[in-house]
Design a binder for these strands. Sequence first.
DNA 1: GAAAAATTGGGTAATTAGGGTT
DNA 2: CGTGTCCTAATTACCCAATTTT
Lengths: 76, 76
Amino acid sequence: MVTPTQPAPTDGAEHLLTPGEVASLFRVDPKTVTRWASAGRIGSIRTPGGHRRFRESEVRNMLASLTSEALPQTTR
Amino acid sequence: MVTPTQPAPTDGAEHLLTPGEVASLFRVDPKTVTRWASAGRIGSIRTPGGHRRFRESEVRNMLASLTSEALPQTTR
DNA sequence: GAAAAATTGGGTAATTAGGGTT
DNA sequence: CGTGTCCTAATTACCCAATTTT
């Protein structure tokens, strides 16, 4: 299955998360999430007021891709 | 009342969104959208009863322009 | 005509942004 | 270099009752 160039299928109402929610998921300070956004490490959407929102799907994928499982242990 | 959810769009008519719908798109409180309108940050149309409606195209454009993609991952 | 859901308004907490520092 | 904390200003969220929309 190939993922062709994805133009902008975008909003069909993508669920968005607040900085605080993302921070809770990663167990970091909200400020850190802000830094990730500033550094372009994570996509973000700004409200007209300047606050950031994050795509839940992107955050979930990030969590998954950064997760490592322990290898199964052999019972002896 | 026989009018379905959506009246037939006539020419020139633009699809309008309610404060609640716009709020969902930005993951914000409906009242916040109202403030944007009062502050002139977003165009609005008033119903005879005083409720606000927003142009979908304007909202979509706003969303797009305020969106930042994550930079390509530097796989290390 | 009646009822449920949404929006309006105002007022007060809670988050967030941004810079500078550790 | 990345993260956590302190600070101030700004933005946003939740409370209420009254009105409008469906």
